[in-house]
Amino acid sequence: MTSPVDQLSDPAVRAFAAAPNANDQTSLFEALTPAATMSDDGSRRDLREWLNWEVFGSRGHMDVVSESDGGHGLVADYRNDTWRSMGTKWLFTVDGGKVSRLETGQA
C-alpha cells in the first residue's frame, strides 16, 4: 500500500522525499547537510549533480510503498522522464536533523 510522504516517520527523510514531488529544489537541498554524500546502485555519485539530473532535470516523483528502520529506509515507486517508473530502495543517514548520506538503487 502506498503511503504519502507527509506521513513518513523521520522529519529529515520526510522533507527530502516531499521536495521532488513538489518540484522544490530549495527545500530538498535544505534537507541535506553541506557535505552530504550518496551512492546509486553501489556507485558513488556527486549528490547535487545526481539530484539535478535524476530528480529535477527529469521531473522525479516518489510514491512511498513502505518505510523501515525508524523511517530511514524506504521502498518507493520512483518515476522520472528518463527512466519512467521503477521500484527503488532508499537508505538515509540523518545527522542533526538533516540527511548526511543517501544510498539508493533498484529494489
Rank of each mutant, 00 (worst) to 15 (best):
D63I: 01
W50I: 02
R59Y: 07
S58E: 05
A36K: 06
L28T: 02
Y78M: 03
D40G: 00
G57F: 09
M38G: 13
A35G: 12
G97K: 11
L51G: 02
R44Q: 14
D95I: 00
W83E: 04
A19K: 02
H61D: 10
K98M: 04
N52P: 00
W53F: 12
D24L: 10
S68A: 15
T82P: 00
Q25C: 04
V55F: 11
G60R: 05
S68R: 14
F29S: 03
A22F: 01
W50L: 06
M38Y: 00
R48W: 02
L47K: 04
M38N: 00
S58R: 10
N21H: 09
S39R: 12
T82K: 14
S39P: 02
R48Q: 10
H61N: 10
T82N: 11
A19Y: 08
T88C: 05
L32Q: 03
G71N: 07
Q25F: 10
D40C: 09
D24S: 09
P20W: 05
E54Q: 13
W53N: 07
L51N: 07
G96R: 04
L28M: 15
S27H: 05
S39H: 05
T26K: 13
D77P: 01
D46S: 03
T88S: 07
V64D: 13
V75E: 12
H61K: 10
D41L: 02
A31P: 11
T26G: 05
S39V: 12
G57W: 14
